[in-house]
Structure formats: structure tokens, C-alpha cells
């Protein structure tokens, strides 16, 4: 159980990522109810305090809302989710581009490399 998490980042942030990925991928839809803190804790093998923090962070990011006495829900505001989707894409691309630039790859090499990898992955499926 302990090995499901990277050792170098707070677990709650890893869970925030996991939940936001599920939201932007559409596994969790706008307005869906998130599991209770206890259920989520048992599923993820972490302390309920950690899940509290995850839900608080999702709320701070405006992609989840707590309804008193009912639980935590994915936001109804699809605009927010699209915005998050775009942000996460940019974040990933920027860090990738920075490393590729640092290694001296040209844009053409990068694009060709991505296409090749994409085709390979398709072949594997």
C-alpha cells in the first residue's frame, strides 16, 4: 500500500492530481458526488486527515464544492473544468519543452519524436 505513492511529494498533492485528472478526463462528471472522506481514505490507504486536505484543496481550486451535510461534489461549472484541463496541459508541455530545449532538441525533432511515440503506443494497444 505504501508503495503507491511517490516519495518526494506530499501524498495529498498526489491525490489532488489523481482526482483532477479523473475530472478532466470525464470519469467524474460535473455535479458528481465524491466518495465520503472515510471511503476515499480506505480506498487510497491513507489517513482520513489527508483526504480532508485533498477535498479542501479541490474546493480551493474551485473544481469541487462542499454541500453541508451532503458531502463534496464535482463543480457544476464546466468552464472551470475546461480551464483546469487547459492549465494542466500547459503545465506538462512547458516542463517537457524546457527539458527538451535544455538538451538542445529542435522543434522538428521534438514533434517527430512525439508522433513516433504516439504511433508506437497505438500499435501496442
Amino acid at each position: 500500500m505504501g508503495n503507491d505513492y511517490e516519495s518526494s511529494r506530499p501524498i495529498y498533492l498526489q491525490l489532488v492530481d489523481k482526482m483532477s485528472f479523473r475530472m478532466i478526463r470525464g470519469d467524474l462528471k460535473p455535479g458528481d458526488k465524491l466518495p465520503s472522506v472515510r471511503d476515499m481514505a480506505v480506498d487510497s490507504g491513507v489517513n482520513p486527515n489527508t483526504i480532508q486536505r485533498v477535498y479542501a484543496e479541490l474546493e480551493r481550486m474551485d473544481i469541487a464544492e462542499v454541500k453541508r451535510g451532503q458531502g463534496t461534489f464535482v463543480t457544476q461549472d464546466e468552464e472551470k473544468l475546461l480551464q483546469l484541463r487547459e492549465e494542466l496541459k500547459q503545465r506538462q508541455i512547458q516542463s517537457f519543452m524546457k527539458e527538451m530545449n535544455d538538451m538542445g532538441f529542435t522543434l522538428d525533432e521534438i514533434i517527430n519524436g512525439i508522433k513516433l511515440e504516439f504511433d508506437n503506443e497505438k500499435g501496442r494497444d
Binding site: M1, G2, N3, D4, Y5, I11, S44, G45, V46, N47, N49, T50
Partner: peptide, 9 residues
């Protein structure tokens, strides 16, 4: 320690 780490505050 490794096993219980996700449990600890």
C-alpha cells in the same frame, strides 16, 4: 515505516 507512511500526519 514505509508501509504506514501514508497513514501518518
Amino acid at each position: 515505516v514505509e508501509e504506514v507512511e501514508p497513514l501518518l500526519d
